[in-house]
Design a protein around this nucleic acid. Structure first.
Lengths: 213, 213
DNA sequence: GGAGTATTCTAAGATTCCTTAGAATCCTAG
DNA sequence: CTAGGATTCTAAGGAATCTTAGAATACTCC
């Protein structure tokens, strides 16, 4: 092993890097960033086997990126604090800027729909012609949402289309920036003649939008 | 291997994390962040064996964090762009906030001298009673320095003490935030009766100081 | 072209990390 | 106090990474 005088310091810095070095952990962080969850909910939402989820959570906890709260037989995890959440947003932004392969992978999953940025949405919130649709499960909606948004999970969208005014300009969003649900919703709405667009970055992107209302 | 639908995306994100997961690579990045260097200079400055340096540079290049420029028989590496540099600063700040062990490791290496922040220094630059001393090698000084600083490498400090006015309030800095040279300089100056302090974060910290001159 | 130098490529042993099965722990409910 | 469920701990095989020796490449200078 190499060693130089500053190694113990960089060893510590590398702990953060290591925590962010696995796709599974990054996925878990993104899911947790939206709201607190139990290990099982988390494993479910992230699509990762339970045991693996638990093991990775230990590492994230050791790196002080998440904290657990025990309530009865369950442990609720969440991102340790706002600083972690901001840093994750920073990481996503950075990687998106620098890695063309990341942009390709995103496009492969979400399609190349033109989205609305959080800043644009903020500016349009006052406009009554804009209708904001939250397609996440109602639990997520309840934990926080864009002001004025209506909760309309994708599963119910088809049957509840009549709740949306025909001539509205719709902005649909889901949870993380890589969530495909709002893209599906927008496609469905488009087929029914609506003017609908996704919100870039999803709800997380909204929460971390650059300064100003 | 786990897999969930967004895996290819998180795989890409993890490339950045992986690049930052090794103490050696982080050290190289910090050294490169100060100025462009050849592989050998870099290995020398970082205290890492040459072959290992070269191998790690390949990885950093694959992650688009550094770029190389070939000039004759030599390759000059540098941090890819300002965005990378800012992100590294962000990482250091984040880790420093969250990991007590990191703060301990820094204290173990640098001692617990009270430093001056970059913001404080900026505010004091106009004050003629403050003398800023750059203790890095002259090559580094030439590549960029705090305005008004005088170049006085540690090796020459003892003999050139008379260049410093007795009653000056001295601020000494070196390169990275974990460089011990300025701490030594401050200790030496203290023994000779000077009022001397280090600059927190070194020259890198200065370059990334929060907005405002 | 040939000697000499800087850097990278190839390859392989040592090490660390990922994943997951099975046992253990800690909790609630009855 | 016992049954049953949620989560973590322990352990081990397999995969990926780190480190570094040796060969190969690419350049300069003569």
């Amino acid at each position: 092993m190499s060693d130089f005088p500053e190694e113990p310091i960089y060893e510590q810095l590398a702990r953060v890097g290591k925590a962010l070095a696995s796709p599974v952990r990054l996925r878990l962080l993104d899911v947790l960033d939206q709201r607190e969850r139990t290990v099982e909910e988390l494993a479910q939402a992230a699509g990762v086997p339970l045991k693996n989820t638990s093991a990775q959570l230990q590492q994230l906890r050791a790196a002080h990126l998440v904290t657990g709260r025990k309530e009865g037989a369950r442990v609720y995890y969440r991102v340790a604090d706002e600083r972690v959440s901001r840093f994750l947003a920073e990481l996503r932004g950075f990687a998106h800027d620098r890695l063309a392969d990341l942009r390709d992978a995103v496009r492969a999953r979400l399609g190349s729909l033109e989205g609305v940025t959080a800043g644009e949405l903020a500016a349009r919130l006052a406009d009554p012609g804009t209708v904001v649709v939250d397609v996440r499960p109602v639990t997520d909606f309840a934990a926080g949402h864009v002001p004025g948004a209506i909760s309309l999970p994708l599963a119910e969208l088809r049957e509840r289309l009549d709740e949306l005014p025909r001539q509205a300009r719709i902005v649909a969003y889901c949870g993380g920036p890589y969530c495909a649900v709002s893209s599906q919703a927008v496609r469905l709405l488009g087929e029914h003649g609506y003017d609908a667009r996704t919100l870039d970055g999803g709800y997380l992107g909204w929460r971390h939008r650059p300064a100003g209302e």
